[in-house]
C-alpha cells in the first residue's frame, strides 16, 4: 500500500536530545556500561554467593566464608551493562491507513531509537513488513525512511518471519494492534526476554472515530476482504463498542505481561504525544 511519506525527521531530531527512555529499574542485559546487568560479572557490587565450581575465577573466592563454613564459597558480582533497546515496528498495511498514521509510526520508532542512542543504549530496529528487516545503530534512520508497510498479515503473523527477538532491556513495539489474535499470548511473546515492554499503539482518526452516514464497501487493509455496510449510527455505535472491548482486552493482556500499553493518536503532533500520551516512555532527560 503506497502512501505519501509524512515523516518529520527534523522534529524527531529536535525532540530527541531532551528526552530519555524510561529504563527499567531491575537488572538488565546489554553491553558493558553503566547499568547493572542481570548477569554476573566483575563489578564491585555483590550480587550473590554460590559454591565454587571448577573453572571459576579463584580471585572471586570469599575466603572468609570458606573459613567459616569450610566450603568453597564464591562471590558472584553483577556486571555493569549498557541495556539493549529493541524497537519493533509493525509493517502491516493497516499501519499506512493514512499518511499521518504511517508517519506517526515512523516518527515514534525513530524517536525511540534516537533517544536510546543518546542514552548510550544500542538500538535495534525490526520492521515486520513483507520483507522483514533488522538493523542496528545509525542505519535505523535510513531503514525507517525506506520501510514500507506492505505486509498482508498482522503483527502476530509477521513475528514468524522476523529474526528472533533477543533478550534486551527495553523493547518498544509500535503497531496499531488492530487484528484478530490471541492478545495475551502475543503480548506474552513480545515481553519474553525484555526487562520492560512498551506497546505503543498508533491509531488513525478513522480507527478511533470512523465517519459514517452512507453506504460503503469496507475493505480490510491486510486481507482485502470486503463487507458492504450502511454506516448508520447503530453500525458506528457497534464498532465503537467492539473497539472499546478490543482495547480493553489489549490493556488487560499488557498488564498481565507487566507491559505498558500506550495509545498514540496519529492526528496529534509528535511533540504533543511525547508530552502527553507517551510520557511514560519518553521522560525528560533530567528525570531519567
Amino acid at each position: 500500500m503506497s502512501t505519501a511519506l509524512d515523516f518529520d525527521e527534523a522534529e524527531v531530531a529536535r525532540l530527541a536530545p531532551g528526552l530519555a527512555l524510561a529504563l527499567p529499574r531491575t537488572p538488565q542485559r546489554g553491553r558493558v556500561g553503566e547499568v547493572r546487568a542481570a548477569s554476573a560479572g566483575s563489578s564491585l557490587e555483590l550480587h550473590d554467593f554460590r559454591a565454587y565450581q571448577p573453572g571459576d575465577d579463584l580471585r572471586q573466592m570469599d575466603w572468609n566464608a570458606v573459613a567459616r563454613t569450610g566450603e568453597l564459597i564464591l562471590r558472584v558480582r553483577q556486571d555493569e551493562v549498557s541495556p539493549r533497546l529493541e524497537v519493533l515496528l509493525d509493517g502491516s498495511r493497516s499501519m499506512a491507513l493514512s499518511p499521518r498514521k504511517a508517519g506517526c509510526a515512523r516518527e515514534l520508532a525513530l524517536l525511540a531509537t534516537e533517544v536510546g542512542a543518546h542514552q548510550g543504549l544500542s538500538p535495534t530496529l525490526l520492521v515486520g513488513g513483507a520483507r522483514p528487516e533488522r538493523v542496528q545503530g545509525q542505519v535505523c534512520r535510513s531503514a525507517l525512511r525506506s520501510a514500507t508497510f506492505d505486509a498482508k498479515d498482522a503483527l502476530h503473523a509477521a513475528l514468524g518471519r522476523l529474526p528472533p527477538l533477543r533478550p534486551c532491556g527495553l523493547r518498544v513495539v509500535v503497531s496499531d494492534f488492530l487484528f484478530e489474535a490471541p492478545l495475551p499470548a502475543l503480548v506474552s511473546r513480545l515481553a519474553q526476554g525484555a526487562a520492560v515492554l512498551f506497546l505503543v499503539q498508533v491509531l488513525d482518526a478513522e480507527d478511533l472515530e470512523p465517519t459514517g452516514g452512507e453506504g460503503a464497501r469496507l475493505v480490510d487493509a491486510e486481507s482485502g476482504a470486503a463487507l458492504e455496510e450502511l454506516l448508520t449510527e447503530e453500525v458506528l455505535a457497534a464498532y465503537a463498542r467492539r473497539f472499546a472491548e478490543h482495547q480493553k482486552a489489549l490493556g488487560a493482556a499488557a498488564a498481565r505481561a507487566r507491559a505498558v500499553h500506550l495509545v498514540a493518536p496519529a492526528p496529534q503532533a509528535l511533540r504533543t504525544l511525547v508530552a502527553g500520551a507517551l510520557r511514560p516512555l519518553f521522560l525528560p532527560a533530567g528525570v531519567a
Binding site: 487484528f179 488513525d204 475493505v219 487493509a221 470486503a226 457497534a238 464498532y239 478490543h246
Partner: peptide, 18 residues
C-alpha cells in the same frame, strides 16, 4: 446499486462485522 458503493479501507474489518 451495490457496485456504486465506494470502497473504504479499514484497519480492522473484524470490528465491523457482527
Amino acid at each position: 446499486l451495490r457496485r456504486k458503493q465506494k470502497p473504504v479501507v479499514v484497519s480492522a474489518l473484524f470490528l465491523w462485522r457482527t
